[in-house]
Design a protein around this nucleic acid. Structure first.
Lengths: 248, 248
DNA sequence: AGAAGGACCAGTGGTCCGTA
DNA sequence: AGAAGGACCAGTGGTCCGTA
């Protein structure tokens, strides 16, 4: 439906970075491990196999060549754009971002139809299987970390397009970066949840285009924190049920 | 509600077997691996750490002692019983089996309430988390392989109690074992699915006590096979839409 | 033989952090 | 600095098969 029209929103061409090659470092004991301070509970360990272009191999000197076999491409970064505005330069706009969510929905529907056809388990959410399918059919610009990262921004766009549009205009005008805009998308969603009995899962599941997305952990945590906050305020003497948003 | 009344259905005492102790065999290469012929696709490898009672240790000679610290207990096996009938001897009846499903439902509800309290993700199905909870609160007789094994039997009990009861009486009379009864539970479910557009997921999800259980893979496959079968028959010249159950 | 369940494994949800 | 995404990891769904 809107799929092809919006494809034009993506800038042609992609950012480039050198392809990495993996070298096995299995069984090398504790070397290369790194302590990570976990924000909660346990600490984790993470081992990474990271190697630059092999020093022994012949390699192309020209980093600017286009279509070279040795370049890994990544999408242009997002910038805050107004509704309808196409990003200039090596950037992508927010209409394009939201369009990616619609594409994932389309891929999910196809995966569901295949599963029904085969009599297999049918996913109700955008799962790893859907991301794999997207890759398989050539939509390599769709990946899980990116989609999960901006889910709540898409949620606001779905649930209150006017508020979403107003936020985009305000943040563009102030010259804020994408990260700041993304952070700001949480607050109106928490306010909506407050009005609906703090049922953020219910809010997602009631909306046909949003129901296929997992509620982001951080949004869930913010809602929970605010609910506790509101409950404490309303039970405090003289607070009279007012909602005070200390955590923002 | 019915929980305590039905607890009496379980035979007191449990079957006994020696406790096993694990010995680490990490890093011992390919020793102990065993080829398994997979029924589909790939072959799998499975490594098991299995050790009998340590030969060096002092051990109790008396295998019959009750409450000995070195006995692992497992539930009595099920036998086919009529509705309302309590199994005699070291056996459990089918009312007790179905009661375990109700207990799991109760545990799920408690896990859900805890999750909601904490603002965490709330399971809608009986998941590993629920089985862990059951173990934690002392219901060690509940475990995942057992519950998954008999889900479709419980489904029939939920969806058509009369048919389920009739099947139990018939199989008891014929002196069939639990395995045979369990196999026979598939057919009436497939017939029900045929009547409802082959939507076995819909059938499960519509029933309040069944909706919390995953549809068993085998039941799903049987429904799919029968649907294909029925479609082929009805499109064959002169078959006139009759459903012919070749696969049973 | 028939059956209960510990323990395994492929693929999941979630996101960190090496990368540019 | 701000951002995209490969790749990791703890815990899942599913059930095999060593056990008695």
């Amino acid at each position: 439906d809107t799929t092809n029209a919006l494809d034009a929103l993506s800038q042609e061409g992609l950012s480039e970075e050198p392809v990495q090659q993996e070298k096995e470092t299995m069984g090398s004991g504790g070397g290369g491990t790194r302590e990570v301070v976990a924000t909660e509970k346990k600490k984790k360990q993470r081992r990474r196999k990271v190697v630059r272009k092999g020093g022994d191999e012949e390699e192309d000197e020209d980093e600017d060549e286009i279509g070279g076999g040795c370049e890994r491409q990544r999408e242009h970064p997002f910038i805050v754009t107004e509704p309808g505005e196409v990003a200039r330069g090596k950037k992508n706009g927010l209409d394009y971002l939201f369009h990616l969510y619609e594409q994932c929905r389309d891929f999910l529907i196809r995966v569901q139809n295949i599963a029904k056809e085969r009599g297999e388990k049918c996913p109700t959410k955008v799962t790893n299987q859907v991301f794999r399918y997207a890759k398989k059919v050539g939509a390599s610009y769709i990946n899980k970390p990116k989609m999960r990262h901006y889910v709540h921004c898409y949620a606001l766009h779905c649930l209150d397009e006017d508020a979403s549009n107003a936020l985009r205009r305000a943040f563009k005008e102030r010259g804020e970066n994408v990260g700041a805009w993304r952070q700001a998308c949480y607050k109106p969603l928490v306010t909506m949840a407050a009005r609906q009995g703090w049922d953020i899962d219910g809010i997602f599941n009631t909306h046909p285009r949003l129901a296929i997305w997992y509620v982001p952990t951080k949004l869930r945590q913010l809602c929970h924190a605010e609910r506790s906050n509101a409950a404490a305020s309303s039970s405090a003497p003289g607070a009279g049920g007012a909602i005070i948003a200390h955590s923002f």
